[in-house]
Design a protein around this nucleic acid. Structure first.
Lengths: 109, 109
DNA sequence: TTATCATATCGCAATATTACGATATATATT
DNA sequence: AATATATATCGTAATATTGCGATATGATAA
């Protein structure tokens, strides 16, 4: 079918899944890394930097904005993007809550 | 086009992206959670537990195996799955290497 | 006002993903 | 051997994602 059956999962699993899905694209990882690296809050030098079309970059930025991990403020004719530190830390926390679980206490594999 | 242009990203970004992409589905999160919760290394009670078709579960398990985060050993007529603790911790480490970066030192947003 | 620059959105083509029924495979039980 | 049980794989339909050119929008500069 191609459609994820979100109704059958818990809200937490859906949320964690969505967050990881959006982060799970190399372009979006590269965009986040670039925003972190630049001391100024760069906008679409990303087009030159990554070598993707402007429309494509804009789309990825939109998805990152949708999950809240970045925010953009209009500055003259360009837009200044930066990481939303609060959401960033929240994501890290959620991920680690999941990954800190005790795994494989039993012996079977 | 629908195809990710992996050639233009670094190996690390592709790797981190792939890992997050595979983890980024609620069914796979739920599968991992179930394997962690069960004290015995359960196999396809997952079909009943999650309410997805057996073929679908099997496909998700395959993707999780592909990135190495779970492994399965044949036990009689069923298969015993468990988390690969080493890979699990490695994933957590990679994620945190990325997320521990200092974010938003500047003031613009 | 007109032109220019930066970004967003639209529409589309190519490809990928999700899900499932049907079938194959492999082991255990009778 | 025949049957049952557990899992994997195949084929396919529905939908989603990726990427891009074209165009729209919105602000500044001329």
């Amino acid at each position: 079918m191609g459609i994820t059956r979100t109704e059958i999962y818990s809200a937490e699993h859906n949320k964690l899944g969505l967050m990881l899905k959006i982060l799970g694209h190399p372009a979006r990882i590269a965009i986040l890394q670039y925003i972190i690296d630049q001391k100024t809050c760069i906008c679409n030098d990303l087009v030159e930097e990554l070598g993707l079309a402007q429309a494509t970059i804009s789309q990825h930025l939109k998805e990152l904005k949708n999950i809240g991990v970045i925010q953009g403020t209009i500055e003259g004719k360009s837009v200044c993007y930066c990481i939303d530190e609060k959401i960033w830390k929240e994501f890290q926390k959620q991920f680690n809550l999941f990954f800190d679980q005790d795994v494989c206490a039993r012996k079977c594999c």
